[in-house]
Amino acid sequence: MTLTMMKLTQHDTHEVPRPRFGTAHVWVESPLQLLSAVETHAAGLLGTDIRIIPRLGMPLEATTQALLKHAPAGVRFEKAARKPPQPKSSSDRYVTGDAYSGKVQRSLLAGVKAKEIIIIDDGLATLALIKQLISETPTPLVRARAKNSAARIAMGLATWHRLRQLAREGRLLIVSALFVDAQTRARMTELGIKFAQHKFEWLSTQPVAESFTEPTLLIGSAMVADQLIHEEPYLQWIEEISADGPVAYFPHRRETPELLEKISKIDQVVLKEHTVPIEMRLRVLRPGQEIRALPSTVIPSLRLLLGPDSRYLYPQAVPDHWWTESTDLELREHLSSSLKV
């Protein structure tokens, strides 16, 4: 395989150097992060020797196998591990998709011997991270929907300071497919945070492996499993959609078997196996097909991949009565932000 350098989009991304050599140790904890790792490498931002290490116990096998067939030269998929790898040389790069991960934060705070820390795309979480990092006030890097202990909050705050230090040293790069406004970019530059944006250029050149015949493609949501919305209105919404014709339902990896069992019994709904990221599965539509979804990171990603056909992507805002009482206003707004990106 030959390494093809993908051109990053946006007029100012040329400011980010393109490494042509060196080793990067990439720790991934989700299928999207795994895809993002390959995209970032194809854009020339990781080096020539890319070692991708999945977190042990995560459902990444299908995505790994799909990417192995066409991955750019230099990518090596290594055995899953319980904790992030530690670069052996100060000339290596340390790459992760989740700066909120407790394992990643412990690793960063223990001291990482690497020339650069790269945070690759993890969807809306990446935008949330940027917002927190550019804050004038130190902000704990913890998940908004989690119940965090005092110790966890303290570690998140220490990680904020650590990443800001790395930025001052010119050693922090963030890569995303999502749009970041000019004001935020200016603040990032002021702090020393480097940024590059891609538009799934590598994936767009790859053959489409799947085709679906159902006229409606419904992207499943984890919000019921995460106890952010009530189950009953979610099921009613699926029933209303399926009343108009056959529906292919693509489960989220966190949806429970109990919920999927109920969805499978809805008339005209065909449950699809959870395999690779939706970005890889639904980037090409057949004539007459449409995509339905609740707010999700996948919405802005699919808008990029579908191009003109993105007009057949219909995201649904979450009605107020769907939210559970424990989902506060700030979290509701964060989860709904994908509709505006």
Rank of each mutant, 00 (worst) to 15 (best):
P300A: 11
R171I: 04
K79E: 15
L203W: 06
L302C: 03
L166G: 00
E232G: 05
V269R: 11
L56S: 12
E330V: 13
S301D: 08
S36K: 00
E39S: 05
E29Y: 03
L304F: 00
A114F: 01
S135K: 05
T256Q: 09
P257I: 05
L294W: 11
L60S: 01
G57L: 06
F179L: 13
D320L: 14
V28H: 03
L302Q: 02
M5N: 12
A66P: 01
P215M: 07
L313C: 13
W237S: 10
I118Y: 05
L60H: 00
L305I: 03
A80Y: 04
L45K: 09
L124K: 07
E78I: 10
P138R: 11
G22T: 11
F179K: 13
V180L: 00
T48D: 15
S30I: 04
K265L: 13
S301Q: 13
V341Q: 15
T139F: 00
P207K: 08
Q206Y: 06
P72L: 10
L282M: 11
L8D: 07
E39V: 03
P138I: 10
L335H: 00
L271Q: 11
D122G: 04
P233S: 07
S242Y: 03
M280K: 01
M223T: 07
K131L: 06
K83P: 03
D92P: 07
S89A: 12
H252P: 03
L46A: 06
G97D: 14
S336Y: 03
E325K: 13
A150E: 15
K88A: 13
H198F: 08
R18Y: 14
A81T: 12
R162W: 07
E136C: 11
H230T: 11
Q183E: 14
R253E: 04
I130H: 00
E232Y: 10
K115A: 08
T2Y: 05
E231C: 12
L178P: 00
Q132R: 14
R187K: 15
K265D: 15
E330I: 11
L218D: 10
T13G: 06
E240W: 09
W202R: 06
M5K: 15
T189M: 09
L45F: 08
Q289M: 11
